[in-house]
Design a binder for these strands. Structure first.
Lengths: 396, 396
DNA sequence: ATTATTTAGTTAATACATTTTACTAATTAT
DNA sequence: ATAATTAGTAAAATGTATTAACTAAATAAT
């Protein structure tokens, strides 16, 4: 039956095996240290099945055995963990302000990374530049001996749900770019799975997939940078990222929250992005694209109109969070993106607005946890790598 | 792998069989008249598997054989259809203004129906009244000889995703009502599956499941009645209704689209419901709850302030549609609910606003089809019945 | 110390769903 | 009529998970 990665819908015995293998891997990822017996209990599979699947996964470098459990009577189980030492995934983000790359292992640890803060020009040149950085990254001592599962690339715009093509990146001026094809033309790049996704989706996926602690049922990741995007993920063993008919799920930057408000790049008035986004704040404060917005705000922090501007932006973000909550109702909201560098100045009004406007629908249950990622430099790149892992886990 | 109805995640041979059976049924539902060979081609299953599954489904009254195909050379295949003659499902809607009941067959045809336009009082009494109507409905000649698969109930408020409990129905004044338990206490009701869901979710499900023609990948159904709700469905063979952490997915009536606007029942200002909803319009026009809103509007159609009010409501609906599109990006928008009785007066400004504000993100691909259901008296009830069928199809 | 008990994990036999292969059935084209 | 083509069925083969019986390794009781 279908999950995010296998759109197929009917199944044979192969599919069944892959399903159970993937479920077992997911179970260990979400609860590291479980024993075979624990897994059997949790998944409903028999000890025999779990035993044989685990054996295969250990041999292939996906799982490793750890210490013995010693809890009460009986033979102790052997703890199982994802094996962080044999495979790695590459993740890259083509951002409006530069390229970011990571290599990370099955546990989500970043083994090597690099970034180049220089706005991309045309797709072709950017692909060549990214290929160069990737090849250098792959020489890093921490990963040179490992097996590469593939490469995930995150881009700042919607990706067509039917093909891995960037359909529009307003802030780069790119339209219908088959970035992976451009990349594939470069020499010496690794084999394996190659994936392309929207930056917010990738980031959301990574935060969900490598969540530390008890994972929420679903999350919405609001990416507040030059523009405002949002990625959604849910589904415990098979995390699903809804992309929508045209890949526009989560384009909340262009939801209208102030009819008749300021003119937006998209042609409408009162879009959320006109109130809270990198470009809108830069425009209002006269800050160049390649200068630091947060530094400019910091420098002019005592000007009343600057304070009011950031305050209003924060409140707009809070409103956006509320509307998102009433539309998608995720178990957790995560805030990331470069705008988080404005810290309390932006975040406090946002949270205050969100708390103050909890209405009856919300108040009856406990309110939604909110997590803030202050430095999300590599969040999308790591998320893209996570997507590679999730996909590879199905095939192993 | 999990679908809407089987939260399980690991699988055995039983699961595999159920998966394929359900897929085959879905294939026939979406394309009536396929032959066994067509199904094998479409699903990727072998002819042998399809043959044996179809045989079982014909025996159990889910499929029936039809005419022979005659297309070119070779032995003609035999057309297969869902069997509309042996089973039926009951669906009921507990609405703010009354009860609506249907019995429908596997093809989605309504075999019998009744409604009682009298606002529900307390849950207990309502359950008793509904039970009475159900028992009378089951005596209808069209269904009395058939087998009942179960009962689906749609309610005007969010249902907890973890249990079939209506957590809040603001317009009924009900809180945390276990309506199915109350119903179960009544005598002589049928066995089978009993389901409870939000009215908008149920309606959305029914429109998706029994869609006539080529079904869209996903739909969002906007239910514009006393309040404004929205249901979402996607997934071809296993339609999924995202419900969210607290069952609040689609509570778009309380998204804020006019900060600082009119005070809403929920305590906030500027919610969509303050501009476009049965209660807001009644309040503005001084129409009693049990009187007809559309009649009142009709009667005062030449007053300028009434015209302006409806015009504004329509534009708010259009804005809501746009925001929904940018957040969920469904393949099709469906508008329903009692407000549709205002017809062109409301719908035209809504569509005009929606078309006029298509921005770059939308314009690049063809625009979203919009379907309007003018009379949605039984839409939610039939949808609840559809949910029963979808669930029963997994178990057969 | 020895034995019983409990839990973990493996192995071999079994059950069963799908596939593969070979077949029969029914039509059209030659 | 015969060949060719497509639909559908039947029997054997494949491969999955389960069941049942086992071994392994710890604690608790004697």
């Amino acid at each position: 039956m279908p999950n995010a990665f296998t759109p197929q819908t009917s199944g044979d015995l192969n599919y069944l095996k892959s399903l159970n293998r993937s479920t077992i891997l997911s179970t260990v990822r979400r609860s590291p240290g479980l024993s075979r017996a624990d897994i059997a209990l949790e998944t409903g599979l028999t000890k025999a099945t779990v035993g044989s699947v685990v054996q295969a996964l250990v041999e292939r470098g996906w799982l490793r055995e750890g210490e013995l459990h010693a809890r009460g009577g009986g033979r102790p189980g052997r703890a199982l963990y994802l094996d962080g030492d044999r495979h790695y995934m590459l993740g890259a983000e083509v951002g409006v302000k530069g390229l970011r790359l990571v290599a990370c292992n099955l546990v989500g640890e970043i083994l090597a990374s690099c970034h180049r803060e220089e706005p991309p020009t045309d797709p072709q040149t950017t692909a060549a530049r990214l290929a160069g950085l990737l090849n250098r990254l792959r020489q890093a001592p921490a990963i040179v001996e490992r097996h590469c599962l593939g490469l995930g690339v995150a881009v700042p715009g919607p990706v067509s749900p039917s093909a891995p093509i960037l359909s529009l990146a307003p802030n780069l001026g790119w339209v219908d770019v088959d970035f992976l094809a451009l990349l594939r033309a470069e020499p010496d790049l690794p084999d394996g799975l190659w994936l392309l996704d929207n930056e917010a989706n990738a980031a959301a996926f990574g935060e969900f997939y490598f969540f530390e602690g008890v994972p929420p049922e679903s999350i919405a990741y609001i990416s507040a940078g030059s523009g405002i995007g949002c990625g959604v993920v849910s589904g415990e063993h098979f995390p699903v990222v809804p992309r929508g008919h045209q890949g526009l799920v989560g384009e909340i930057g262009h939801t209208v929250i102030q009819p008749g408000g300021a003119l937006c790049h998209c042609g409408n008035r009162g879009c959320a992005e006109t109130l809270v986004s990198g470009w809108a704040l830069r425009e209002a404060l006269n800050v160049e694209t390649d200068a630091s917005l947060s530094a400019a705000v910091q420098a002019r922090a005592d000007e009343a109109n600057v304070q009011a501007l950031i305050q209003r932006a924060g409140e707009a973000l809070g409103l956006l969070m509320l509307n998102l909550h009433h539309t998608l109702n995720p178990s957790m909201l995560i805030l990331g993106g470069s705008l988080m560098r404005l810290k309390g100045r932006l975040i406090e009004p946002a949270l205050a607005y969100f708390q103050a406007h909890q209405n009856d629908l919300l108040r009856q249950s406990q309110s939604v946890p909110i997590k803030i990622i202050e430095d999300s430099t590599f969040t999308a790149a790591r998320g893209a790598a996570a997507q590679v892992m999730a996909r590879a886990a199905i095939e192993v």
